[in-house]
Amino acid sequence: MSELTYTAFLGPQRLATGPLTETLRAVKTALDALEGPRTQPLIVFNDETGRPADFDWRGTLDEVLARHAPAAKPGPGRPRLGVVSREVSLLPRHWDWLESHPSGASAALRRLIDEARKADPEGERRRMASLAADRFLTVMGGDLPGAEDASRALYAGDRAAFEAHVAGWPEDLRLHALYLAAPALGDAP
Rank of each mutant, 00 (worst) to 15 (best):
P19H: 13
V27G: 01
A167M: 05
P183C: 01
W97G: 10
L98D: 08
P102Q: 09
A177G: 02
L15P: 08
E115D: 10
D120I: 15
P12R: 10
P70R: 14
F9H: 03
T138Y: 05
V64K: 03
K28V: 09
P70V: 14
V166M: 00
L131C: 07
G75Y: 02
E87M: 09
T138W: 05
L24A: 03
S130T: 13
L185Y: 02
L109A: 11
A133M: 02
E48R: 06
L20N: 04
T138I: 03
G123M: 14
Y6K: 05
R78L: 04
L91Q: 05
L154A: 04
P19G: 13
P76S: 09
A71I: 15
A16D: 03
G142R: 04
L175Q: 14
D149T: 12
D149V: 11
R58P: 10
L81I: 10
R14E: 10
A129M: 04
M140I: 03
L42I: 12
L131F: 11
E163R: 03
R58D: 11
S100M: 15
L154S: 07
A53W: 05
T49M: 09
A107K: 12
L42H: 05
D47G: 01
I43E: 05
E171H: 12
F162H: 03
R86I: 09
W97Q: 08
R14A: 14
A116Q: 12
H94S: 12
F136R: 01
D158R: 07
W57F: 05
G11W: 09
T39H: 14
D54E: 06
T60Y: 02
G123K: 13
P41G: 04
R127W: 14
L34F: 11
S2N: 12
V64D: 01
T60E: 10
